[in-house]
Write a protein that binds this DNA or RNA. Structure first.
Lengths: 200, 200
DNA sequence: GCTACCGTGACACTCAGTTTCACACCTGGA
DNA sequence: TCCAGGTGTGAAACTGAGTGTCACGGTAGC
C-alpha cells in the first residue's frame, strides 16, 4: 500500500515533468521549426540536461507524439464497450468519437499540433508508424466482440482491414479539417469519410 | 538528340550500378540484419566509398525500399487505364494487379524482401511513409476518372479514403501472405480484403 | 591537346541516440 | 544518528547516419 502510494506519487511527478517538457518542446518546435531545434536546445530551454530529456522521451519526435499516447488503448476499450450486435464499421465510427472529443476540448491546440505533425516529414512518418501500431489492438477488439463461442480470437483479415480503414478515415478527415483551418466540422468530415467506405 | 542519347546511356549505367548496390545491400541486410550493417560495411561490400553509396541511396533504408520506386506512378496509370464506367473500388482492385504481378514473377525474392521490411522497424516505418505518399497520386487518378465536365479535379474526401483503404488491403493481404510463408494465394487474400470493405 | 564536366573518394562536421559512470538526494532501518 | 539501497540527474565518451566541401581523374566536345 505504502509502496503503491509512493510509486504513484513518483509516477505523478514524472508525468508532470514529462508534460512540462513536452510543452516547452512544442513551443520551441512551433517557433523555430522541428528540424532547427536540437536536443541541446530542448534541454537548455527546459532547464534540464540532454540526458534527462532523452530519458523522458526516447526521441525528439516522441516529445510531440506523446500527445497521442494511449489512443490505442482508449480506442480498443471504446470498441469493446459497443453493443455486441453492432456491426464493425459503426462500432469503429463510434469508438473514434473518443478521439475526436479531444479535438473539441481544445481545437486551437489540436490544430497547432496536427499542423506541426503534418508539416514535418519526420513527425508525420513517426506518427504514421505509431498509428500503424494501433491496428492490431483495434482488430483484436473487433475479434473479441465477434468471438462469441470460440475463445481463440485472432483477428480475421476483414477485421484488420476495417480497423486500418477506420484510421485512414480519421487521417483523411483530419487532413481536410486542417486544410480548412479548423473551420469545417470534424464530425461531419469523419462521417463523410466513413460513408465513403461503408462495408457490405 | 546526341545529348538525350548520351544522357540515356549514363542513366542506364547509373541504374545498373544502383541495382547492383541494392543487391549487395539486400544480401548483407538479409545475412546480418539491417541494424547490424553500417554504411561503411555496405560501401566496403559493394566496393565503393561511403559517399558514393549515399549518392545512390539517400538513406540506408532506401537501398531496400528502392524496390518499390515507381509503384505510385504505375498504380495511377493503371487506374487511369480502367474503363470510365467502373466504380472506384473495382478500379483500385484491378490496378493493384499491376503490383501483385511482381510478387508472382519472383515469389521467393518478394517474400524475402517483404519479410525483411516487416521485421525491421526502421524499414517498416519508412515503407509506410513512402506508401503514404502514394495516396495523393491514386486519389488524383480517381478524381481524373470521375471528373468528366469540371477540369478542376482535386480529389474528394471519399476518393482519398478509398485510395488509402485500397493500400491497406494490400498491406493486410501481404501480412497474411507473409504469415503463411507465401503458401496462401495473394490474389485470394487481396480479394478477401477488398470484399471486407466493398463500398456502397 | 585543351577544356569543361561529371562521377568518385576523402575528409570534416553536425546531430541523434546509447552507454557508462559519478554524484546527490531521499527513505527506511539499525 | 548514521548507514545502505534505490532513484533521478548530469557529464562525457562513443557510434553511426547524413551533409557539405574539395580535390582528383577520366571522358567528351572544341
Amino acid at each position: 500500500m505504502t509502496e503503491t502510494a509512493r510509486t504513484n506519487t513518483r509516477d505523478i511527478a514524472r508525468a508532470a515533468v514529462r508534460a512540462q517538457l513536452a510543452q516547452v518542446a512544442f513551443e520551441l518546435f512551433h517557433r523555430e521549426g522541428f528540424d532547427k531545434v536540437t536536443l541541446d536546445d530542448l534541454a537548455a530551454a527546459a532547464g534540464v540536461s540532454r540526458s534527462t530529456f532523452l530519458r523522458y522521451f526516447g526521441t525528439k519526435e516522441d516529445a510531440v507524439l506523446a500527445a497521442f499516447d494511449g489512443h490505442d488503448r482508449r480506442l480498443a476499450d471504446a470498441l469493446r464497450a459497443r453493443p455486441s450486435g453492432e456491426d464493425d464499421w459503426t462500432a469503429l465510427r463510434r469508438a473514434l468519437d473518443t478521439v475526436i472529443e479531444r479535438y473539441h476540448q481544445d481545437p486551437a491546440a489540436a490544430l497547432a499540433t496536427t499542423r506541426l505533425v503534418r508539416e514535418t516529414p519526420a513527425l508525420c512518418a513517426r506518427h504514421l508508424e505509431k498509428q500503424h501500431g494501433w491496428r492490431p489492438a483495434l482488430a483484436e477488439a473487433l475479434a473479441e466482440r465477434a468471438g462469441s463461442a470460440d475463445s481463440a480470437d485472432s483477428p480475421t483479415l476483414g477485421q484488420s482491414v476495417r480497423a486500418a480503414a477506420a484510421l485512414d478515415c480519421l487521417n483523411v478527415a483530419l487532413d481536410h479539417w486542417l486544410a480548412s483551418d479548423g473551420r469545417l466540422d470534424l464530425v461531419d468530415l469523419l462521417d463523410e469519410a466513413f460513408a465513403a467506405l461503408a462495408p457490405r
